[in-house]
Structure formats: structure tokens, C-alpha cells
């Protein structure tokens, strides 16, 4: 492995020179690998792959601020949802109620530590870490604060995506209520309302978040992406804007070499 990354970049530049010019505007479907030229779409619209129908990208109005508001609300609702009882039970004069944490502990105390870990991850830990990491990323973006950890945190959020299962849990609550109905009287706890609120916030977050815009923001530090490849490396009379862009390009090269 004597070939460094930079050498590879240079050789491929020569080979794909025509493509290289417009690279920032191209995208490939991540489910069928078809290449398209990225088209601007209206706000609130979604772009789908014409070949396989995969969701490619979306345009969301004011994505950073809206998602931040939703994720902060979700974080506030998280604590009552986890700590307050979600369902209660009355049978023969005895009553009992269960919180999200009690459900995890019940399995753990019976010795099913792996299953209890799974329930803990899917119903409490992943949704919380998802909301927290997204909130921190969006706060950093709205404050124009750049740090390598912002990118790492957004990467982390991408990795966790798909493991939070609040909507499945809600159906689970309904199923257990129906199962208990003939045995005892079941009542809804205050925690369930907070839980439904948190679930709604996470669903609205996925609807209002435009990940592409966040990535472009993290990459360029501006809302409109500037294809840095389009700028020639040596501009005879470099304007101020161009210099900024070439500087960014240089920074990226540096980062690549470090790896």
C-alpha cells in the first residue's frame, strides 16, 4: 500500500477530468448506484430515483431551526416519558404500575440481561442519544461553531438511525393493555402522554430534517454549496471569495494526507 490517497486523487483527476469539473452537482442513488445530475427542487418536495424509486434527497424549509425546536421538545419530554408510569394495573385491590425503566429492570432481574439490554437500547438509550446528538449538532450549526466533534457526532447519529423503536413500543403498550383487559383493569399513566409526545417529536424530526443540507453546512460552512472543484487552483487575479474557497480545498487536502 505504497500509494497514498493524494496520488490516487491526482491520477483519477486526469482520467475523469470532464466529470471532475461538475462533481459537486452529481449524485448516485445509494440503492441502485445510478448517477444523476442533482436538480434543484422546490421546498417541501422530495427527489426519488427514477430507476428504483429510492428516496434520494429532500428540500425542507428552515430545516436547522425547525428540527432543533423539535429535538429540544423531544429531549424535555424524554424525562417524564421515562420516569413516570406509562400503564397502571388494578387487580383484586392491588395495584401496580410500570415505567419504561421498570420494564427493562424486570427482564434484567429475571436474568435475561441480553434481552433487557436490547429493550434498554431500543426504547430508551438510542432515542435519547439520537435526540441529544442531533440537538448538539444543530446548536453548533446555528451558532456557526466548527469543531471536528460536530461531524463525528452527526456521523454517530447516522449510525444509530434505525435502532430507536418508539413507535413499535407504543404498539407494544397497546398490545399489552389488550392482553391484560380480561384479567384486570388497566389505566393509562401520565408517562404515556409524554411518551406519545416524544414519539411525535422524533417522527416530525425525521420529516423536517434535510440531512444533505446539514452535511453541506458541515462541509462548506454555508447553506448554498459551492463546488470547490469548479474554481481553478491558480486564479490570476484572485478575488476574496475565491481565496476562501481554495483555502478550504487546501484544508481538505491536509486532512486527507493526515489519514
Amino acid at each position: 500500500m505504497s500509494v497514498s490517497v493524494k496520488d490516487v486523487m491526482v491520477t483519477s483527476d486526469i482520467k475523469q477530468n470532464a466529470l471532475y469539473q461538475e462533481e459537486g452537482e452529481w449524485l448516485a442513488c445509494h440503492e441502485c448506484d445510478a448517477v444523476f445530475i442533482k436538480q434543484a427542487i422546490d421546498v417541501r418536495f422530495d427527489a426519488y430515483c427514477p430507476r428504483c424509486g429510492c428516496h434520494l434527497y429532500a428540500s425542507r424549509p428552515d430545516t436547522v431551526r425547525r428540527t432543533l425546536a423539535l429535538s429540544l421538545t423531544g429531549l424535555i419530554l424524554f424525562f417524564p416519558a421515562v420516569l413516570l408510569p406509562i400503564i397502571g394495573l388494578d387487580v383484586l385491590g392491588m395495584s401496580n404500575s410500570a415505567t419504561l425503566i421498570a420494564a427493562v429492570l424486570a427482564l434484567f432481574n429475571e436474568g435475561y440481561w441480553w434481552t433487557s439490554f436490547l429493550v434498554l437500547a431500543c426504547s430508551i438509550a438510542v432515542p435519547f442519544i439520537e435526540m441529544l446528538s442531533l440537538t448538539l449538532v444543530l446548536i453548533a450549526i446555528s451558532l456557526d461553531h466548527y469543531n471536528p466533534w460536530v461531524k463525528s457526532m452527526f456521523k454517530f447519529w447516522h449510525l444509530l438511525k434505525g435502532w430507536g423503536m418508539l413507535e413499535v413500543y407504543l404498539i407494544g403498550v397497546l398490545v399489552s393493555m389488550v392482553k391484560l383487559l380480561d384479567m384486570a383493569s388497566v389505566h393509562i399513566g401520565l408517562g404515556l402522554y409524554a411518551f406519545i409526545g416524544m414519539l411525535l417529536m422524533t417522527l416530525l424530526m425525521t420529516l423536517s430534517l434535510d440531512t444533505e443540507e446539514v452535511w453541506e453546512f458541515l462541509e462548506h460552512g454555508i447553506h448554498a454549496p459551492v463546488p470547490y472543484e469548479a474554481v481553478p487552483a491558480s486564479v490570476p487575479t484572485a478575488r476574496e471569495d475565491d481565496q476562501v474557497i481554495t483555502e478550504r480545498y487546501a484544508l481538505k487536502e491536509e486532512g486527507l494526507n493526515k489519514r
Binding site: 406509562i86 394495573l89 392491588m94 427482564l107 434481552t115
Partner: peptide, 20 residues
């Protein structure tokens, strides 16, 4: 995962000693 969640909830909720 639905079934796992239902069991976790039921195990936490129906814990009334010898009765149920």
C-alpha cells in the same frame, strides 16, 4: 421487536406475588 417490548412491559406490570 413488538413481542419483546410486550413481554418486558407485562413482566414489569404483572408482578403481584402469588396472585399473578
Amino acid at each position: 421487536m413488538l413481542d419483546i417490548f410486550v413481554i418486558a412491559l407485562l413482566a414489569a406490570l404483572v408482578n403481584l406475588g402469588a396472585v399473578a
